[in-house]
Design a protein around this nucleic acid. Structure first.
Lengths: 203, 203
DNA sequence: ATAAAAAATTGACATATGTCAAAGAACAGT
DNA sequence: ACTGTTCTTTGACATATGTCAATTTTTTAT
């Protein structure tokens, strides 16, 4: 989620993509990037057996492709809409020509810097050895402070599993264990954390 | 490795750090970042048992701390020199005041964008299931094209193991296996890849 | 050269995790 | 409400990996 500033909004042009339509393909020259207004974008690449492996998903308020536009040559992945989507498209030329504007350049510097920080956190959490630890950390990251919290997952559990670097079966078992230990209550997509402090200790 | 441009070099001030001296500590306000001229900087954080966990290492030509300066508030980690080191220090104020200069802002945008790309690649490689796959990918990344290659590790094997998200024992066994399969020859820090194509297939 | 310290390898072993398969639960469309 | 589809959970099982401990190799210092 990144709110745009008006100076930048003006640079973009509105585009719409129907469900399953491509924004770009791997290998395409990176000529522009996208701000999602409405809908959802799936980013994936193909493995050896030409099977799609999802690497990220972007929704309203997210920006995608900017790192490649500013720091690379060609998109390394595919991007396709999974719902009818509305986006703001920013062409590389237009944006580069606007970097004289201090507000605009500062915006992108901050945007990219924050992305770096998030990516670094992601890497660190992948270094946590067990799925249990990664799962606990993820759940705790969804609630601030201490006490009791209710989390409602906004993604499918398969997707959460992938995000945590595992598969749904293993995650399911870990959720089950945490529940058996009395740390959480799971009901469909709703997860109640009974005590975030105890939860943290259990990691 | 990032070569500086003269406009930016002028903004920095030379500082030296003795072996084991701190550049900054976790929790410190992020008031500036560093370009390493000579020496080596260890970046780490402390786990629950107050044990140091290294997360990165920076050498000549590397820039550290810039993402936090541009996109955060406080350093999330510790940084200390592991050799006597010479660096260029850039204060946040000085750099922010210089973003009117198009060349300077473009430099940082590209720098951060490329870092994002590298971090994304890192995340993707951590998603490769087995240590074997990650090791093979790492070795292949060290040699371009196809054919026979000789790699000389410039880091300790424990460090490479950590980088790959594993421990030295497991890496050692995997190197042994690859050698037994005739794919590589290991002699100390020197690793010879006999055929990068076969190597790739073995992943 | 020799001794001491650090790094790397190897073995034995427990276990968390992925794979395969099947059963249950939640969901969407008619 | 019913039916087909998708998502989730559970079980049985093989295995890659981390842990602990011992040994060998390499590096460093005297």
């Amino acid at each position: 989620m990144t709110p745009l500033i008006s100076e930048i909004e003006e640079l973009g042009q509105i585009k719409t993509f129907a469900k399953d339509e491509y924004l770009f393909s791997a290998g395409d020259k990176a000529l522009g990037f996208y701000y999602v207004i409405r809908g959802q974008i799936r980013v994936y690449h193909l493995d050896e057996e030409a099977k799609e492996v999802e690497v990220a998903r972007f929704g309203p308020g997210d920006i995608l492709g900017e790192a490649v536009v500013f720091g690379g040559e060609v998109y390394p992945v595919f991007a396709a809409a999974i719902k009818n989507s509305k986006v703001l498209y920013f062409s590389k030329r237009t944006v580069l020509d606007s970097l004289d504007n201090r507000k605009i350049s500062a915006f992108f510097i901050q945007l990219l810097a924050q992305k770096c920080i998030v990516l670094n956190q992601r890497i660190e959490s992948l270094f946590l050895k067990t799925v249990r630890q990664r799962l606990i950390q993820y759940l705790l990251s969804k609630c601030a402070g201490q006490g009791k919290y209710t989390i409602v997952l906004d993604i499918k559990k398969v997707e959460l599993a992938r995000y945590l670097g595992t598969i749904s079966e293993t995650m399911s078992r870990n959720l089950h264990d945490l529940q058996a230990e009395g740390l959480i209550t799971v009901k469909g997509k709703t997860i109640v954390i009974h005590d975030s402090v105890k939860m943290h200790q259990a990691g």
